[in-house]
Nucleic acid binder design. Sequence first.
DNA 1: GCGGCTTCAGAAATCGTTTCCTAGCCTTCG
DNA 2: CGAAGGCTAGGAAACGATTTCTGAAGCCGC
Lengths: 373, 373
Amino acid sequence: MSASRNNSSDQRRSGTVNIRDVASRAGVSIATVSRVVNHIATVDAELARRVWKAIEEVGYVPNTQARALVSGRSRMLGLIVSEITNPFFPELVQEFENLAVAQGYEVLIGSTNYEPVRTESLIRRMLQRNVDGVAVMTFGIEEDLVQKLVEREFPLVFVDAGPALPNIRVLKVNYAEGIRQAVQHLAALGHRHIAFISGPLRLRSAVARRDAFLKSMAELGQIVPPEHMVEGNHTMEGGMAAMEHLTGLAELPTAVLCSNDMTAIGVLHALYRTTHKVPEDISVVGFDDIHLAQFMLPPLTTVQMSCKHLAAAAVEALRAGIESDHPKAAQTEWHIPTQLVVRQSSAFPRGTLPALVERNAGKRKGAATKRNK
Amino acid sequence: MSASRNNSSDQRRSGTVNIRDVASRAGVSIATVSRVVNHIATVDAELARRVWKAIEEVGYVPNTQARALVSGRSRMLGLIVSEITNPFFPELVQEFENLAVAQGYEVLIGSTNYEPVRTESLIRRMLQRNVDGVAVMTFGIEEDLVQKLVEREFPLVFVDAGPALPNIRVLKVNYAEGIRQAVQHLAALGHRHIAFISGPLRLRSAVARRDAFLKSMAELGQIVPPEHMVEGNHTMEGGMAAMEHLTGLAELPTAVLCSNDMTAIGVLHALYRTTHKVPEDISVVGFDDIHLAQFMLPPLTTVQMSCKHLAAAAVEALRAGIESDHPKAAQTEWHIPTQLVVRQSSAFPRGTLPALVERNAGKRKGAATKRNK
DNA sequence: GCGGCTTCAGAAATCGTTTCCTAGCCTTCG
DNA sequence: CGAAGGCTAGGAAACGATTTCTGAAGCCGC
């Protein structure tokens, strides 16, 4: 009698074909169908074939919600970024998503727009959707929420440094190396007055980049006057405003290092408006190496932070937290390299060795660092 | 006896607090808790207060999967875009997401990278996740999949024109108006040789923009030679290649209209490499008005297609399809306006009225069209 | 004072899976 | 030849909600 109710050639809700339909069609139990679908080996080859055939015929698609409900895992990953409209992040999202999908996960994306409140509400929303883990590629998460999640052993991945708690995985970006290369590159060109436009200093990674700059300058014996350290906000508008501030100074720096490429684009725009020439009047260096950078006028010298690396590390770190038998389950740190890419927005400062500039500008770039083809 | 098993002050799985925990804490049944959470009015105010208190105390969060399983609705929307790394789409995604979240929906994002195969697999993945509806902001979906979805009365929203089937909602962008404004703007400046770099012509919206261009030119009595119609692919690389093709021609056009802003950025870069000056040597006009456009060197004259409008229409159209009592449930078309925004990448062609160029370039812009502040 | 109607809360069925447990069958070994 | 043990497949119990149905009050009117 139960068979007569379950065996539904006429489905109760239109378009919904479920595991029971497959089972009755193949003449097996739903448990067997489940085993076949999940590739559990303990099922007879002949039966499995019949099940696959039935699945094909009725057009069965497993219901993810039901599956998640009982298994307790949703195979969804959360990815929280600072600002989806900053081109660096779509590039990261794309890489992340491709990798995640290839490994059978879906991705839920959230953008905080640099508002700490949003980070929390995003995480809550994602938890409600039962994501298996969250990668936080921004800042602003409150300690006590993290604390709770850690207690639940919920897989979390942070960039740079999360709160100092166990069971959190961290992607450590080697800002110092890239920034050091950039500073040395500028110094080698003859720059002595290098300004720095930072990101919003609430952001850990922005502070890290700024500190790396100061350290590199100090290593060269250079003291940076405070008026050459400007806080931006990682947007073009911020870069523009910061550069306008710098051009208003009595002593204009001969080079500007920016905390990200969007800032650098804003700087280029500000210099365009004040008719300063780049790189003749002033050199500009970015950070991130977004795809756009090489299309700027002039193409932007910048520090590359590999999206591919970052995304791959994030996915791996999440899986390490989710799957208890993951080979890297015990690993807590992933290291992401950075590297200077020299293009045409950096050159000898005006007045120094003009002849050399003319002759060597082409050959000079990318000497010890990555060559831009 | 069942009470002793369900009443779990010690939860069976760590961190999972469910409706039963709330019920036993508040001393009510799970049905009542459900009613309270869903704001169903037939529950006593005092009881409701007790339930809310219990919810607060145990930190209850409803399990979305279970809810979706029984209610048949997931409150998730799918959004499929052409290419997430084209800055237009993150802007759209952001607007869409903000609106959706404000209305209680979550968003699943997919990027096809212009591969038709991916559109299909994306839709399938989204269906598997039980999204309530999908907005397809790109092309390449196969008719028979759509046919199946239409039969299931699955809410679908297309841009421009989906397959001609009932029960599909369409966002019609008025490309013709924006393109016409752009062409007339260039013509008014004195341009007679205007080239057009299209998008990939498999894409409906790319064809629509191209046709609008040809029509506008025809209205002015201008015939466009075939070598001035170049097919691009909506990327910077495509724009660059297309422009390189154009600069190789015997007769260089005096203006180039691009099917989107990324193409225009590629064009600017190509012209930079060939040391052509914009707008003195050649005028460049884009389409989309991405945020980046105003920061280009020079700031890009472009046709604005409002993300806000588009996103709002998409969300509204989806909800109209999902919620049977929606006020616009019967509406099948939404109209999206476009409008020229004049900036500094367009000017009089070299040789014509040079004096006027000098004197009027500043005042001229934005005469009959939107003024860029 | 009692019957019927309204209101509100609880019991139980259901959604579509996974997974544990058990029953049968076949093999193998004593 | 019989008992033990290993496979395989099915039955049934979860998973955490919604929702229908049922039943117990309370109130009103006759």
